[in-house]
Design a protein around this nucleic acid. Structure first.
Lengths: 227, 227
DNA sequence: AATCAAACGGACCCCGGTCCGGATTTCTCA
DNA sequence: TGAGAAATCCGGACCGGGGTCCGTTTGATT
């Protein structure tokens, strides 16, 4: 099993199955552990499916992850894949879930400057940089996991990022419309944009990083950090 | 014929057909007139297809625009649709082309404050507002026409917007990394974001507009306009 | 009218997503 | 502990839509 996983789509396409996630707190990504209470066979199959999926990605890239192929590789029926993960996006998201949780744990309760303890402005800077590098690492998967436009912002994981940035912003610029500002900032960290800038326009990640720091400084009306 | 149209996908899936657009200038959206030099029957079919498509949209929403349905409604083979427009996205883009050109003409050569004549800062403000309202009007179509993430920024129309914002920014904040700043600003005007904020979170357009003006002020380190 | 590039059309393939009869597991109660 | 019932899960046939292919037709050119 290559990924510690958790499923997190929103609208269950199958009546009463699908792992529950609707109640996900704004800042808490669903139930804690890896395996929610599933029937034994279901749990086994899910693990097999995720392992198969990540193997397929390694072999043929994210594009080669076809639902049928995953099902076959896990020696499972196609319907099982959809029941468990809702749709293709759900499966891909599940593969990203591990790192999403890690990042979230880091900025919610990890050591400064990402976690609490550092001043908000520093945390915001660190947050962007962290997200930037994380996205860059898993860029292919991030792009493939991108849901259709109308669902891009509803996913709990996305909501958690938004909320966190919003909370930080409120401490830095209490008089601004932090909800909108947060979205503007997060737009800069969108995987699709990162892909375009780095892979299509050849801009190095370091420049994007400087760009983030600068953007934060401008948006918050603060000075660049002194280093 | 409901839309003055022009095709603008990038990679022709059919060998030597597909309307040429590779040479599109950064600030000039492909050849001028509506109808590039096509064979008579081809031109006729294209018009029929676009009319059929926009009728289908009016009747069944953007989701009802299936390639087969469009072909049938235009009494044309399915292959013809793909030859002409490359893919579904291409067809939908073609429907948006008219308003895209109009907007571009407005900010390239129209009257101030959008067009040349006004100070760059004002033009930038006006640009965002214009784009905001245009996107809000055609939101469904804009969302449906969204290409897969890896192509979101390559389309000539998107490039034109970027370049324009960049040019304005260079006049306002010459020392900044205007390429990145432009992307950050444009991210705020992304149709998917507008959709989320207005339709899913219920934020009124006026607030988004104030958000834009504020964002511009922050990013450029200028004051809010006095009105 | 002969020629040839360009356009046409619809059969075809692939993949995401759905459905439901039947198999497994878990629960309940003796 | 074990049998029966209820809840859950499984699998693969099925559907619709996007995209491709290639033999055929049509319109421009000389």
């Amino acid at each position: 099993m290559l990924y510690a996983v958790f499923m997190s789509a929103s609208v269950p396409p199958f009546p009463a199955s699908q792992e529950p996630v609707g109640e996900a707190e704004l800042l808490q990504l669903g139930p804690a552990g890896d395996e929610p209470c599933l029937r034994a066979d279901a749990a086994r199959n899910r693990a097999a499916l995720l392992e198969a999926a990540s193997r397929l990605i390694a072999e043929h890239g994210a594009a080669g992850v076809t639902m049928e192929a995953v099902a076959a590789a896990a020696k499972v029926g196609k319907g099982t894949v959809f029941r468990r993960f809702g749709d293709r996006t759900g499966l891909l998201m599940a593969l990203l879930d591990h790192s999403a949780r890690k990042l979230q744990a880091d900025f919610l309760a990890g050591p400064p400057p990402l976690g609490p303890g550092a001043p908000p402005l520093e945390r915001l800077r660190a947050f962007g940089v962290a997200l930037l590098y994380r996205s860059a690492e898993q860029l292919d998967l991030q792009l493939a996991a991108q849901p259709e436009p109308t669902r891009r912002f509803v996913h709990p994981s996305a909501g958690a990022l938004t909320t966190h940035v919003m909370v930080l912003l409120r401490q830095i610029v209490p008089d601004a419309d932090c909800e909108l500002l947060a979205q503007a900032l997060l737009g800069y960290l969108d995987p699709a944009l990162i892909h375009h800038l780095t892979r299509q326009r050849g801009i190095p990640l370091e420049r994007l990083e400087r760009g983030w720091v600068d953007l934060v400084a401008r948006v918050t009306n603060t000075d660049q950090p002194t280093c």
